[in-house]
């Protein structure tokens, strides 16, 4: 069984992002970049499927600038067998990325496509669902448990109020939520080995995909600051303030 796992290059989650001085966009100059945490969980799940003897090949894919090779090498070090970079310097929106992924799905025919539920830069939470629409495959978003049995995948999903279980006919799309697994660290020997693994590069144009943006970023701003209030001395003062000043409890 073949697994395609998508990874996105994003600002490292420890970085506090700032706007550019002209407020046109986020300032990404000299900022540490990493694999999106939810994508890392997707890669880990793919590796576990291989360790269980279910997956036979794991292909990591990224759609973005040349530097995404770094994140693909990380995925290879974690256990992916080979990688594909769809290289583009355009600002790529989820719909454009989903179209590139669809074209690769047609060429590679994976049985399962794993993605992170959202990237921590744009917070769009769209690509997996859009790939579902374009391929016509079933989708299980926000997955916290995945099991494969023959031609079906059974997924437990994190939904408002609890958990939902779905069965999908393969090929299918699964997007990883936080609790799907805890990703491993790549070992040094595996990082060295990853450098020799196959990494092919293609472009949206080669795939026949138009990636022209549909949405224009007009600018960014800092959210309204909330100013700190007061420190209370004890519970008695707190309860008094809540009852008589804020009037939020009676």
């Amino acid at each position: 069984m073949k697994v395609l796992v998508a990874v996105k290059r994003v600002v490292d989650y420890n970085v506090k992002v700032r706007p550019k001085s002209d407020m046109t966009d986020v300032d990404l100059a000299n900022v540490k970049m990493s694999i999106n945490p939810f994508c890392e969980i997707a890669v880990e799940e793919a590796v576990r499927l291989k360790e269980k003897g279910i997956a036979t090949e794991i292909i990591a894919i990224s759609v973005g600038p040349q530097q995404c090779q770094e994140q693909l090498r990380t995925a290879l070090a974690l256990g992916a067998d080979r990688a594909i970079l769809v290289s583009s310097d355009e600002t790529l929106e989820p719909l454009a990325i989903a179209k590139c992924l669809k074209a690769v799905c047609e060429a590679e025919s994976p049985d399962i496509i794993l993605l992170g539920k959202q990237a921590i830069d744009g917070d769009n939470n769209q690509t997996g669902q859009m790939l579902g629409a374009l391929t016509g495959y079933g989708q299980a978003t926000f997955a916290s448990e995945l099991s494969i049995d023959g031609g079906n995948a059974t997924i437990i999903r994190e939904v408002d109020g609890g958990l939902q279980t779905l069965t999908l006919t393969l090929p299918a799309i699964v997007t990883a939520d936080l609790r799907l697994n805890e990703p491993r660290y790549a070992s040094l020997p595996n990082i060295m080995k990853a450098k020799k693994k196959q990494l092919d590069t293609t472009t949206p144009a080669d795939l026949g995909v138009d990636v022209a943006p549909r949405v224009t970023l007009m600018g960014v701003e800092l959210p309204a600051e909330r100013s700190a209030g007061i420190k209370v001395e004890d519970i008695a003062q707190l309860v008094d303030k809540l009852k008589n000043e804020a009037k939020v409890i009676s």
Binding site: V11, P19, V26, D121, D123, M218, G219, V220, P223
Partner: peptide, 9 residues
């Protein structure tokens, strides 16, 4: 965007 660190228009 960015976990609410910025608001995009």
């Amino acid at each position: 965007i960015y976990a609410g660190n910025l608001i995009a228009t």
